[in-house]
Every structure is written in C-alpha cells, then in structure tokens.
C-alpha cells in the first residue's frame, strides 16, 4: 500500500498530503508519524493540506488525534494551508479542530513551530529550525 512520505527538516517533521486520502492511508499516516516522532525526537509536526479538496470528519479526526498524540510525545502540530471552502464545510460539519494549531502556509507554520518550541524550551527559534 502507498504511504504518505514524511520529511525531516531540523527538528520538525513535514508532511504534505496531496491525494484524496483513502481511510487506510490516513490511518497509516497517523501511525507512521507517531513512530517517526519517537524515533527522531522531533519537536514539531507540520501538515500541509493545501492540496486537499475536502476534509471530512474522518480526516478531521485524524488531524485531531495526530495533534493529541504528538503533544503526548512532546511535539507540537501545525496544520497549514486549509482552503476556504474546506474550512467553511468543516465548521458546518461541526468540527473546529480546537486542539490543532493552524497557519496560512508552510513558511508561517514553520515560524509558528519555531516559536512554540523555543517558547517551551527557552531557546531562540533559530537554533532549532
């Protein structure tokens, strides 16, 4: 089965979701991310969903639980690039993903991760990312 690639950048993991995800692919991603965070000691996870045309409750739940699991493993999660139509639909669906941090694009997402990690550690963001 196909898997979504996870890239490592500094102490952050970067995932770009580019396909209309089938449920098993989403579950595999959650598992893979958990393993990689533990293996690499990553402090941040950035998930770029700018290519996704829909996020239903299943994908929404996956994002929520990735954020929750990462938190337990001491990593912050930022979801970036959600499209307006997707955001409106998710809200209408009743999902607001309150546990997930968001940013407009990858650049801002990385900056946000940098701040959060630095904030938690008392480092300068530049040292980490």
């Amino acid at each position: 089965m196909d898997r979504i690639p996870i890239l490592k950048m500094g102490s952050a993991l970067l995932v770009t979701i580019q396909v209309d995800m089938q449920d098993r692919l989403a579950m595999a991603l959650e598992e893979d991310l958990t393993t990689r965070i533990a293996q690499t000691g990553a402090r941040g996870v950035l998930i770029d969903i700018s290519s996704l045309e829909i996020v239903d409750s299943f994908i929404g739940r996956m994002l929520d639980s990735i954020a929750a699991v990462s938190r337990l493993l001491d990593a912050r999660t930022v979801v970036v690039g959600m499209r307006p139509a997707v955001a409106i639909t998710l809200v209408e669906l009743g999902l607001t993903l309150t546990g997930v941090a968001t940013a407009l694009d990858v650049e801002r997402g990385m900056a946000l991760l940098g701040e959060r990690i630095a904030g938690a550690e008392g480092f300068d963001a530049g040292d980490i990312l």
């Binding site: 979801v79 959600m82 955001a87 409106i88 998710l90 809200v91 607001t96 968001t102 801002r108 997402g109």
Partner: peptide, 12 residues
C-alpha cells in the same frame, strides 16, 4: 462565529 472558526482553521 462560523466565519471566525473557519478563518482560524485556515490559520488566520
């Protein structure tokens, strides 16, 4: 409120 929530999901 929905608008605010949707904007937040987008990162604004």
């Amino acid at each position: 409120l929905k608008t605010v929530a949707a904007a937040r999901l987008m990162g604004a």
